[in-house]
Simulated scan of single mutants.
Amino acid sequence: MIELIRRRDPHRPDRWKIYFGDVCIGDIGPRAGVPTTVDQLEWYCGFVPPAHRGVDAGGTAIDLHDARQKFEVAWRKLRTAFTDDDFAAYRYARAWTAWNRECGRTAASCRHKRRMAARDASAA
């Protein structure tokens, strides 16, 4: 089984992103605006598209060790609900989003890429 990997969020250094292979399946980080007398961390396990079906989990934790334990328990329960198609849909959406952002930066180049892709598809 693929091991879970934890990486710092590049946009929020106080948060950790959790990866299953190349798919970000959740995060752990501080809660905002809560009193110091309550759990200071929050965790979330899930990704789109399964999260749209209600296949996700989240909660609070006292410290990073507690958050990691709760996350791993949730992951073991949820992992069976995720299909290969869910992971493929996530990867497709990620690739499409990256492509679309690149098109926004270089609109003329993307029009050319679309024409070339259409030409290649019709030739196949």
Rank of each mutant, 00 (worst) to 15 (best):
R119K: 09
H52Y: 03
D39Q: 15
G54V: 00
G46T: 08
R105L: 11
G104V: 07
A74I: 00
G59Y: 05
S122H: 00
A32P: 03
A51I: 03
W16P: 03
D66G: 13
Y19R: 05
F47Y: 01
C103W: 05
W75N: 04
K77C: 05
Y19W: 15
A74T: 04
E102Y: 06
R114G: 04
P10C: 07
S109E: 09
K113V: 08
P50G: 11
G58S: 07
D56S: 13
H65D: 15
H52L: 14
G33D: 08
V73K: 15
T80E: 14
G26N: 06
D84N: 01
C103R: 13
R15T: 12
P49Q: 11
R12S: 06
R53I: 03
R53S: 13
R91G: 02
W96P: 00
P10E: 13
W16A: 08
C24I: 07
A89C: 08
L41Q: 03
G54D: 04
S122E: 08
S109G: 10
G54L: 04
R31D: 05
T60G: 09
A123Y: 01
A121D: 05
D120S: 06
A118F: 03
A123S: 03
M1T: 02
T36K: 12
V55C: 02
H52R: 15
H112N: 12
A123W: 02
D39P: 05
R68M: 13
R105K: 09
A98Q: 15
A51D: 11
T60S: 13
R119W: 02
G104H: 04
I25D: 01
G21V: 00
L4M: 01
W16L: 10
Y44W: 08
V48M: 12
D120E: 08
E72T: 09
E72Q: 13
V55S: 03
I18M: 08
R114F: 07
F71H: 08
A117D: 10
L78D: 10
R101P: 00
A74M: 06
M116Y: 04
T37V: 03
A61S: 14
G26W: 00
D120P: 00
K17L: 15
A123T: 06
D39R: 12
A88K: 11
W99V: 12
A89K: 09
W75G: 06
D56H: 11
A124G: 12
G59D: 06
Y19E: 07
L4C: 03
N100L: 13
T36P: 06
C110V: 05
R79W: 04
I62H: 14
G104E: 09
A57E: 14
R6F: 14
R6H: 13
P10G: 09
R94E: 10
C103N: 14
C103D: 06
R6A: 13
I18Y: 05
E3T: 10
A121M: 00
G33E: 01
A67I: 01
C24G: 06
W75M: 07
W99H: 14
Y92N: 13
A117K: 02
G33Y: 04
I18F: 02
R115F: 00
F82E: 04
D66Y: 11
